[in-house]
Amino acid sequence: MLELALFYIFGTIAVVSAILVITQHNVVHSAIFLAGTLLSVAGIFLALNAEFLAGVQVIVYVGGILVLFVFVIMLIAVERSTFERQFNRQWKIALITSAILIGELVYVVYQGRDTFVLAEPAVPLVQGAAGNSQQVGMGLYTTYLLPFEIASILLLVAIVGAVVLAKKKTQTE
């Protein structure tokens, strides 16, 4: 009961601030609402007994990525962006395509509703002091080692790519 109430509270905050992120004219205001969305997603994780995920969500997304977003935003002229038009001329086509996309999504979810139901675990997932973090760690380094390593190599490639792009620019200038 409590979990459900928490889910609806955090879910509402997340959705409302996500809408505000894209409707705000000022980019910095968007960033603040993005923080609201990310924090309420962390709240949902907490309500689902995924403490480790909630902590990582806050430290990576709010403490790391969002701070870098704001850092970059401050280096560009925010005043100009507030006067730009938020919708361009293709909004009718965009509306139709996104409506089709939502329709597809709803259809897929409706058709596959039986497979989405997860089996109830026989024992409670969180036990003892180290519970959740330990399980995430064991999962990542045993069962899902290969996907985990592939993801980290992907990130490494992205970092190297960013460095190469940045280097090239300074050399040609």
Binding site: A35, V58, G64, A130
Partner: peptide, 23 residues
């Protein structure tokens, strides 16, 4: 049970206020 992570993640939010203040 995530005490250290909690401290790190919560205190990393503080810097956001400092940046926003400056801006």
């Amino acid at each position: 049970n995530i005490g250290v992570l909690y401290v790190l993640s919560i205190s990393s939010i503080g810097v956001l206020g400092i940046i926003l203040a400056g801006w």
